[in-house]
């Protein structure tokens, strides 16, 4: 039973994992009303921690693999980083992907 959670998802069981990601997401969408709403005020430190969660998680997904990238990928990431100060996510994605596709087409 617990082995299921310890092992990697495989093509055989991935549909169960997908349903579980749905369950986990539903828990986050209802838990706020079920649990947090019972407290009138959230402690400011708890609130600061909650505010920081998405950024803190995303950087751990992006940064470590990016450091092992090749030059085209690193340039694309840096360009996307610069673009994200002014442009929408869709435009950032377009710029980054354009650099990757063109760079690879030229054999880098």
């Amino acid at each position: 039973m617990f082995d299921f959670f310890l092992l990697p998802a495989t093509p055989v069981n991935v549909w169960i994992v997908i349903l579980l990601t749905g369950v986990v997401t539903y828990i986050t969408r209802s838990a706020g009303h079920v649990v947090l709403a019972r407290f009138k005020n959230l402690h400011p430190r708890a609130e600061a921690a909650l505010e920081a969660v998405p950024g803190a998680v995303l950087v751990t997904i992006v940064l470590p693999p990016a450091l092992t990238n090749g030059p085209v990928e690193i340039i694309a990431m840096l360009a996307a980083l610069a673009a994200s100060f002014r442009l929408s996510p869709i435009a950032v994605l377009a710029i980054g992907m354009f650099i990757v596709v063109v760079g690879r087409a030229f054999g880098f």
């Binding site: 997401t25 828990i27 986050t28 969408r29 838990a31 706020g32 947090l36 909650l50 998680v57 995303l58």
Partner: peptide
């Protein structure tokens, strides 16, 4: 997935 979606806790609250 739970961590990425954790912000929703604030939404439903």
């Amino acid at each position: 997935v739970f961590a990425i979606n954790f912000r929703h806790v604030l939404y439903s609250a």
